[in-house]
């Protein structure tokens, strides 16, 4: 299967007080459509920096990133903004939603940004929100929702405009275990159903039971990759016990 995302020897260095820090060091990875990948590792391992580069928020110091056949590392700032708008779906750890827009308006914002706001797309938004169990919260503001509900709205917003890849940064950080498992399970099922490429950065290793591949990072490098069903199950079960 052709990879939708290809990162080749990606490196990101920062200079702090004349000291060069290699936040991401020579990382290569490929993700195919329908594949949901977890990027795990301790704090400072480079996973969020890697995610930022895959999203076009940061330019790599070295290496190349191609998503859907487009060379992300060669794009201008404006082109990367347009790329994120059209091809990337995002959920964040916090401040996910626009606080003054309702659930429905938050999701429709992506359609409006992409000039896809039509009667048909509005109906599809309602369908997607119903699918995520938010059919009765359409006119609620984010402040009227629980953390889990807010994450589900963010998932709907990340998927509604039909992106090439979906990126999730610590989507379960502010949720209790039951809700966190529910959110990631829903996320995974939607990514599989839509045949998208999904990457989730997480500290919570229990969430890895729903992914197809686990990339473990350490000191900016890929330390280990778990891509067989058995390895993933073993990894998740070990952490479920914790």
């Amino acid at each position: 299967m052709t990879a939708v995302l290809e990162a080749d020897s990606v490196t990101k260095t920062y200079e702090v007080d004349s000291t060069v820090i290699r936040a991401v060091d020579d990382v290569s990875l490929q993700i195919c459509p329908g594949e949901f990948v977890a990027l795990v590792g301790p704090s400072g391992s480079g996973k969020t920096t890697m995610l930022a580069m895959l999203a076009g928020l940061l330019k790599p110091t070295q290496g190349s990133i191609m998503i859907g056949g487009r060379k992300l590392h060669q794009m201008s700032d404006e082109q990367r903004t347009q790329f994120r708008r059209e091809k990337v779906g995002f959920t964040f750890q916090s401040n996910n939603l626009v606080p003054y827009l309702t659930v429905r308006e938050n999701v429709e914002l992506m359609l409006k940004l992409n000039n896809q706001y039509t009667r048909q797309s509005q109906e599809q938004t309602l369908g997607l929100l119903a699918q995520l169990g938010l059919g009765d919260r359409l006119n609620n503001l984010p402040s009227q929702l629980s953390g889990g509900q807010q994450q589900r709205v963010a998932i709907a917003r990340a998927l509604v405009h039909n992106p090439a890849i979906v990126l999730a940064d610590e989507p379960t950080a502010s949720l209790d275990t039951a809700r966190a498992l529910q959110v990631v399970q829903t996320f995974a099922s939607l990514i599989h159903a839509q045949n998208l490429a999904g990457i989730m950065v997480t500290h919570d290793l229990r969430m890895c039971q729903f992914v197809d591949k686990i990339i473990q990072m350490q000191d900016g490098k890929i330390a280990r990759v778990f891509d067989s069903e058995q390895e993933i199950r073993a990894f998740s079960n070990a952490h479920m016990l914790n």
């Binding site: 359609l111 048909q120 599809q124």
Partner: peptide, 29 residues
């Protein structure tokens, strides 16, 4: 789950004409 988002792409008319407003209505909104 039904693949609703896949169908979310805009459907243009047969003439494939899209009128883009001079000023986007999004900022005032």
């Amino acid at each position: 789950y039904v693949d609703t988002a896949r169908r979310a792409a805009p459907r243009t008319s047969n003439l494939n004409l899209q009128i883009k407003p001079l000023i986007s209505p999004l900022p005032p909104y």
